[in-house]
Write a protein that binds this DNA or RNA. Structure first.
Lengths: 224, 224
DNA sequence: TTGTTATTTTTGCGATCGCATTTTATAAAA
DNA sequence: TTTTATAAAATGCGATCGCAAAAATAACAA
């Protein structure tokens, strides 16, 4: 008699590589401008270059990587124009997702949001930028995931995949300059609006949140 | 002395295959549910399966293809829920793009739009669905391309890449049922608003355009 | 040191091979 | 005819090879 366990689902290698690269991108381990060559990456990861090529092409399709004329993949540099553009498009998608989420969020979702908001405030007080960025992502996507629209969620994810690497330039920094952004914290107010099913309030606050981050980074970010 | 011509830029094969597949998708040559196997496609295209694999993965990254548990790629079936979702997200992105385009459109752009609008009306009168769909795509993207936001344009393109194959189910049909959608034609009014720089009017009309198409297809489309 | 040329290494990319699994076709049995 | 068992073909996927182009390095001259 066989044991009552499902067989181990071994993911394809190219899927594993993709996830690792995607995570490395979003957690800011790769600096903009960095060139990613399939052979070298393959050697690092201990695979052949084939699965790496697959993963790189997928990331490029999502515009998380850029293809040089010679075919090499580069983490695109962030210019002010591009950042401006991405943030403006965030303003189109994310408040809309939040508005839809207002009706969908259940008690469990709200509970989680309250917890993340606490962690977020703590991170801000500690001036812990890494924790702040982590929980901020967690917070926003807890809302967006509740919008009930897979397609809109997907679009937002591709936007974050492009902005993410840039945000992480602040990782590890503790300049006083950064206090500003950490201190204006709409998260608690957003939770309150969500509890009250106040969709206009959520949209208003989230818009301000993104705008403030936009303005702050246009000032303090290191652009190409 | 060499001739004054730039060297012939030979695109990589996987790029050619990608473009061909992408075009086949958007022009509805591939029916939803159709399974795309790299080896068979490669044989059809006269290449090895490697460049085909690349192209398929890119399309899958954009959600234009779906990956079965065994790794095969399928053109995803269109359910009412998915169509609903995609059209709702279109309503988020496209009017926003159009609003931005109002300020950017120059005389040349408006001229082209007027021409396309004429072709569109003619196609509607002729009940020529293929021509209608073709010019409709042309018309909308002439507006969106003028929005000046590469990221928003990209998001809209991924949405159309998913909806496109489904729309083409009507290709070749000439039922009377289809008159309805072909007759409500906001395009001329949209052009007028664009000429007047009336952004609210554009948003209003485009929203109605998408909504009407949405409602019509929910009625008359063949869902999975 | 600085600029130029030659040499070596790396890289993108397509083809082909091999293995394990799945799918399809075929044959046998009910 | 329908169902089951068996054989054959097709498929996903990773590795490896080879070629041409590009990039990096070394060698040399000014």
């Amino acid at each position: 008699m066989t044991i009552g366990l499902a067989p181990v689902e071994t993911q394809p290698l190219h899927e594993v590589v993709y996830e690792r690269l995607r995570h490395a991108l979003m957690s800011g381990q790769l600096a903009p401008g960095r060139k990613l060559t399939s052979r070298k990456l393959a050697k690092e990861l201990g695979t052949s270059d084939m699965p790496v090529r697959s993963a790189l092409m997928r990331l490029q399709a999502l515009r998380a990587l850029e293809q040089l004329p010679n075919g090499s993949m580069v983490l695109p540099a962030m210019t002010k124009a591009r950042f401006d553009d991405l943030m403006t498009t965030r303003l189109v998608c994310e408040p809309a997702a939040a508005r839809q989420a207002v009706e969908q969020l259940d008690r469990g979702g709200l509970l989680k949001l309250r917890q993340v908001a606490v962690a977020l405030t703590a991170a801000a007080e500690d001036q812990d930028i890494d924790a702040y960025l982590y929980h901020n992502h967690d917070f926003k996507f807890a809302i967006y995931a509740a919008c009930g629209s897979p397609s809109l969620l997907f679009l937002i994810e591709t936007l974050w995949l492009q902005v993410g690497p840039f945000l992480r330039q602040f990782s590890g920094q503790f300049d006083n300059d950064l206090r500003g952004i950490l201190e204006l914290d709409y998260h608690d107010e957003i939770v309150k609006c969500l509890e009250d099913r106040d969709s206009e309030g959520v949209v208003e606050l989230l818009t301000r949140d993104i705008r403030d981050g936009h303005a702050f980074l246009m000032e303090n970010g290191q652009f190409e």
